[in-house]
Design a protein around this nucleic acid. Sequence first.
DNA 1: AGGAAAATTGTAATCGATTACATTCCTATT
DNA 2: AATAGGAATGTAATCGATTACAATTTTCCT
Lengths: 329, 329
Amino acid sequence: MTSIKDVAKAAGVSTATVSRVLANKPPIRPETRERVMAAIAQLNYRPNLVARSLRAQKSAKIGLVVSDIRNPFFTAIGRAVEDAAYEQGYSVLMCNTDENPEKEMLYLNLLHDENVSGIIFSPTHQFSSQAGDFHFDIPTVIIDRLVHNKEADMVLLDNVSAAYELTEHLLANGYRKIAGLFGDASATGQERHQGFVNALRDHGLTPFSAEFVSPRIRSGFSAATALLQNADQPDAIFTSNSMLTAGVFQAAREFKIKIPDEFALVGFDVTEWGEFVDPPITVIAQPTEEIGRTATELLFQRLSNPNRSARTVILKGNLLKRGSSIAKR
Amino acid sequence: MTSIKDVAKAAGVSTATVSRVLANKPPIRPETRERVMAAIAQLNYRPNLVARSLRAQKSAKIGLVVSDIRNPFFTAIGRAVEDAAYEQGYSVLMCNTDENPEKEMLYLNLLHDENVSGIIFSPTHQFSSQAGDFHFDIPTVIIDRLVHNKEADMVLLDNVSAAYELTEHLLANGYRKIAGLFGDASATGQERHQGFVNALRDHGLTPFSAEFVSPRIRSGFSAATALLQNADQPDAIFTSNSMLTAGVFQAAREFKIKIPDEFALVGFDVTEWGEFVDPPITVIAQPTEEIGRTATELLFQRLSNPNRSARTVILKGNLLKRGSSIAKR
DNA sequence: AGGAAAATTGTAATCGATTACATTCCTATT
DNA sequence: AATAGGAATGTAATCGATTACAATTTTCCT
């Protein structure tokens, strides 16, 4: 491996000079610079990032810790973060915790040990509940899930409003007996429940039902099965995340119940299947690109000004009205 | 930050001893080990991985370079690689090249500079075509796409057989006018074309048509539109990847053409939408879990024995017969 | 007890880049 | 021509862990 010493020798200068040329830090005589550049090119030298990171105690890397890499919501955010970081010359280490607090600690420690400059992080439920005590010694931006901690910046969706809007859409289209299914694994589900209840209340209604279940396809399937096999059925089901939506959809197909004729279905997050099925599913689209980009920008701002107080950015969701919730006949 | 020196001081030993305790490398007197362990625990010390990596000129990390993070095929592989690596105490840096050769070089260099122990890599088309000249100075396992290079291990799908089987399935179900759409961005498309043609030939048939197009939803849409608006229509469309499948599916919906009544549709790779639509799509499922795990295992074998000759593992796809290709009436 | 061999621990160089400080080289001014 | 003062470059310490080798202690045998 060619090191800075080899370059120095080849150019007939000291390592300090090579380093200065690399960092573009005057004063350097143009002639010297060229000799060094020539040596670098000739030896095909690239600085050792590990050594640089050891010396500088930091590195041009940011960590992205997501709770489920298979969730398209997070891959979309990953793309956005990567693009934004790339523009600043940073690279992204993407880590998947699988909603597992152990892996979460493992990767947070790993990123710390790797001297990443900052972390973008969607915490597990367990983490969130203890986040108040947690001390972030690396600049951190929390995404998607509210935590109560003074030290971290956050980028969140206005879940209450989004759920409110989605519920109002159902009401506007004539649905009245609306059942709600909410994820029980994060604050997100609770916030969406809040918006759901508020909207109904403001129209003088109460939920047909409201359940908190594990945010998995299977749970959505079971809950929907119970709802739909009852004599008294809802005319719409509101789901708080795409796993639950999928479960409800599968239940409807299993029991040959027509959407939206027999009940309307709405949920959160854009998915490929939700667009492709017939009818397509009405959802609140989260601005994933914007979330990722905003989180990255907040992080860079924090890096250049470590002392400013933490701020929280709340973004709005976007209602995509589709066939699964058209006006009731 | 607490370093090994602090621990040494606290335990009243030298840094060498601490290091030996950490590496669990005898001889160490049990009593000393305990003093050191106590100091480590008390100071909450964790070794600096950067320093360790600089000294050792390697690290317990492997790089995973994929061409499209949004493709579920690659996220599934990412999960498998991560799990397999985790079991060996390695962590995974996941990089997304977006089929962009520049990003590809950037990330290969970055991983190199990060002292990763090995790389698992699905190369772009451009890379593959020049791969013969490329010298892998880090142990590398190529996945998904054939390259001609003596130095790298590979894990591939038996694309010819898989396409053959998929085509025979169509034939068995009575389809005869079979059009093929193939991706033009990698050798994969060509191999699948080969199997497609072979199967037809072995039954004394020729393709209704066969086109190579860019592997994008849009291209699949256009190609299908052309095929389906013609007076003489195929009774089945064979697609070589899930983007093309999606494009064809959308075209069918756009023009209200019923699958499989008017034409059957088959393709490659499991996707959520392919299962959820009605009828679900018949596909060759690639064993993503096995691909990722095998690649990781090959890599570890190579790490422990750098001199063995490169080997290629060919895995079989799994035909999932579904509604989009049921027996023709 | 004496001393060789084995066990344990310490000293210091090393990985590659950065940078405070020291040194050398110019240039311009009187 | 002498010299101050800035420009350019070099020297060497540093980041934290590892490890060859040296030094010390312990063990064991006669």
